[in-house]
Design a protein around this nucleic acid. Structure first.
Lengths: 110, 110
DNA sequence: TTTATATATTGCAATATTACGATATGCGAT
DNA sequence: ATCGCATATCGTAATATTGCAATATATAAA
């Protein structure tokens, strides 16, 4: 196979999985790191920052953009990428909820 | 290729990516959901809960376990799986940090 | 217009993931 | 010991991901 049976799961579960997948590669985590660290939302020195060839970086950026984690806008002949706050919030809420449920439970098992 | 160049990234970045990858499939998100919802850390009715064959579920459980997100302990002839609080916390902190950095910045761009 | 720079796309090879049938393993009950 | 249940592992097919060279595109600068 190789294809996930997404149709059998809830939309929420698929959304979380898709966002998680977008962060499931260290290069993409590194891109997010970089965008958080840069003051002005300066564009793709990202290519220079990462130990990967330009087409590979471009591909990773595309995946982050498709997932909605980052936005990109054309700025002259360069492109300005930056984090999409709203979508990051979805993930933050997800983990906050998990933690809350864990704390509510406290039935130590395993 | 197909293999990530993990050696070029920081340990932290690789850790986050690995944990994210563990959640990068709706079935695994569903497993976490289930474990959070069940009171007693009851074992693998998980197979009955999911629309996947038993070997497939077993494989997903293994991935969650390898990533450290869940723990499993033998309980008679069944196995008791439950969430590993400590590791979930890593992800929660990660997103909390991101959100904090975003809020500190507030230089609206894009 | 030519040239340089920034980014995206294409095509392909290597590898990883997903899914499951068949089969093994391990334990409790009979 | 034998049976049945719960899990795991193996083997394999279908598909997805990763990475990059080559190439295309698009804008800015000369």
């Amino acid at each position: 196979m190789g294809a996930s049976k997404t149709e059998h799961f809830s939309q929420r579960q698929n959304t979380i999985a898709q966002l998680a997948k977008a962060l499931a590669h260290p290069a993409r985590v590194a891109i997010i790191d970089y965008l958080l660290g840069v003051d002005a939302c300066i564009c793709s020195d990202i290519v220079n920052e990462l130990p990967l060839a330009q087409p590979t970086v471009s591909q990773h950026l595309k995946e982050l953009k498709t997932a909605g984690l980052i936005k990109g806008s054309i700025e002259g002949n360069a492109i300005c990428y930056c984090i999409n706050t709203d979508v990051v919030e979805i993930l933050q809420n997800y983990f906050a909820q998990i933690t809350q449920k864990i704390n509510l439970k406290k039935t130590t098992c395993c």
